[in-house]
Structures are given as structure tokens and as C-alpha cells.
Amino acid sequence: MAILVFVEIADGIVKKSSLEAVSYGAELASNTSGPVTALVLGSVSEDKLEAVGKSGAEKILLVEDERLNQPLVSAYATAIAQAFEKSDSKTLILAKSALSDIVAAKVAVKTGAGIVTNVSSLPDLSNGFHVQRSIYTGKAFENVSVKSEKKVLGIRKNVVQIKEDGSSSVIEKLAVDFSDKDFTTNIEKTEKAEGDILLTEAEIVVSGGRGLKGPENWGMIEELAKELGAATGCSKPVSDMEWRPHHEHVGQTGVKVSPNLYIAIGISGAIQHLAGVNSSKVLVAINKDPDAPFFKAADYGIVGDAFEVVPKLTEAVKALKN
């Protein structure tokens, strides 16, 4: 059963979540005797693709078309659907991202595949094709069976570890028949935070809430994040008041993250905030109020004043590294 994995490129580099998707494909292939093919869209230098082989793909299909350097949903869907058919794959795997769910939806309709997004487990193949997905914004799981021959799976972060022992993959160019309709959207401008670690890709997230009193106090959050190699996040009121940019807002109405470690500083732990973090591996709360609801969800906590605790934490991380 051939498997196709869509590999997303961000700023010329393969996204880590996509490497997870490749390794997910490789795990699945070990039960179904693969092969695993990765699909890359846009112009990307071949040396950047080495990790794709290491994480488990035997082959890379490369659609070299500069127009695809921009996230054009219709064009992506056309390219992926054609690769899905041409590679004769039965399962398409995509890592969850702002772009991939909607693209996956279109591909599923184009190819008649059954689609499951937010997948949180490897499939169980013992009796059909069963997989688990996260629902109710992380508050529950749903076990589904997929009946169709073709399947599209959108997987969450942290479902599998990235493999590193794969070999190098053969790169093959793929030509796609686009239609004019695929390029009717005009992306005029892109605004991206430079050099930051992507929140959704980060292993560690340090997040600040209204307890920090104002944007001028974010220096200590950034410093702790820098020492930990973490991305920074915030609660909704913080982005509403424009202390921080909107794309950092974590929670039900913002970004959902599932890092190994989420540190919440001066965040009360409202259910809508927790909805965005409850699939993190370890949750830490730092809050001066011992009754803050976050302590009910957290694995570790410090009841104390963030302005005293956080600089000490940063020092401790520095000491650890030395």
C-alpha cells in the first residue's frame, strides 16, 4: 500500500511537523510494506531535502514551480491530488497546519478519499482501518473507522517521533497540469515574524498573560524563551490589547499548540485558554494566586510573583546549560 506524504516548506526549509508526517508514513508502511513517497511543492534546494529521506521517505516527488512558493490553496490541492493519483498511493498524510487542513479537504473531494484530520494515533489495521482523532478542542478523542479505499489523514504534532535512520531519497520531478483557476488568488503581501521559532512547531512554549501588566514587561518572557529555545505565546486578552501580535494568541480561538513543555506565566487558566494547550506533554503554571484554575491542569507549578520568579528561572536555565 503506497503512501504519499505532503511535505510543507516554510522559508525554504522543510517543516519539522512535516518530517513527523514522513515518519508517521514510515511507521504505517512498516505494517503495510510501503513505499513512502514525499511530495514537495515549489522551488527548494535539494540539499534542504536530505532530512526527508532520513525521516523515512524512499522517494521525493518535486513539483518545481515558483508560483508554489506561495501558499495557494487551489494550486496546492491540484498538485497534491495529481501526485496522489500518479503515485498510485492509497493513503495521503499531511501534518496539521493553517494551510494543510483546507488543502486536504479539497484533495479528499477531488479524489473521493475519506478524510480524518486532527489524528492523534497511528492507525490500527488489525480489523479494517481505525484511527483516533482529537475532538471537543482536546477534551476528548474519537475513534473512527475509514471505509474508503483512499484515505487522507491530517496528523497532529507529537504523534510519532521523527526517525533519523532512514536513507537518502531519490528525487523525481513531477509535472502537474494546472488550470487557470488554480491561480486566481492574488497574494499581495506576506507579514511574518522574522527569525522567531514557529509557535506550532516549537518543542517548548513560554506564554504570558494579563498578569504581566503590560507589553513593556515581555522582556523577561522573551529572555526565558531564548534561554530555553522556546517560542513565545500569550493569552487572548494580551493580543486583544495588542501587547502581543495576534498570531501568538493561544487557545480555543487562537493557535492550538502541543509542545513537550508549556510554561504559562500570569495566565489564570480559563477553559478557553486550556483548550489550546491541553495536548501539551507537560504544563507548568506560574501564578501568584494559589486558586488560579491553571494549577488544576498543570503538572508543575509555582505560586509566586512572576516578576521575581521568572528572572530566577532564566538564571537557572543558564546555569543548567553551563
Binding site: A10, P71, S97, A98, L99, T184, T185, N186, I187, E188, K189, T190, E191, K192, A193, D196, L198, L199, T200, E201, H246, H247
Partner: peptide, 13 residues
Amino acid sequence: REIEGGKDHLKAK
């Protein structure tokens, strides 16, 4: 539109 780590501005008919 929100994209990861930022946003883009686009036009369509």
C-alpha cells in the same frame, strides 16, 4: 489570512 507565524493579504473575486 492567518498563516503560521504571521499573516498574508490577498485578493480574490
